[in-house]
Amino acid sequence: MAADEEFKQEVLRLAGPEVLTCIQCGTCSASCPTAHLMKPSIRRLVKHCLEGKKEEALRNETIWLCTSCQLCTVRCPRGIRPKAVVTALKELAEREKIKGKDQAYEELFQRQIKDYGRIAEILLSGEFMFVFPQGALQSMELGLEMAPKGKIKLAVEKIRGRDEVRRIMEELGKG
């Protein structure tokens, strides 16, 4: 497939032009706590972006295995932020309407910020159960652990500045 130059330029705009200076040394992959599960590796993901391979870069599990720990970013000898590349790809996946359980989780998280201004964790895990029933066991385990300790709060706190928060997300979300 032909290189998608537009896609490449959009990644560079979001993640920074320094991505062009990548020497494919693999320090990012070697630093990543979930590297053993990633296919493609984070190093190869950067390569896909630079080669304009949009499909390969967007449709994979790698971007959803990133824990945002930033060790790649702290260590990159070229000053690239591989984590920002992942973040850019998540944003582009959202624009392309690529759906999945991981993307759904982020969407629920952001919707809560938009609606309430804060995260209500218990409601969030409840909502996520509908999207991904296989995750219910883990949520119930945690619930059983935390409920007797008074750490499960069902009420939702809404901030007064919700309109401002919504404006931040909508206006700045345009890029």
């Binding site: 850019a88 982020e106 998280f109 952001q110 901030i159 928060v165 931040i168 700045l172 890029g175």
Partner: peptide, 20 residues
């Protein structure tokens, strides 16, 4: 006063994250 969520690690737009 009236603080909001910082976005944690789940806001893909860097600019939105900074705004929050």
């Amino acid at each position: 006063e009236d603080w909001n969520c910082c976005g944690a690690t789940h806001v893909p737009s860097e600019l939105v994250s900074v705004g929050l």
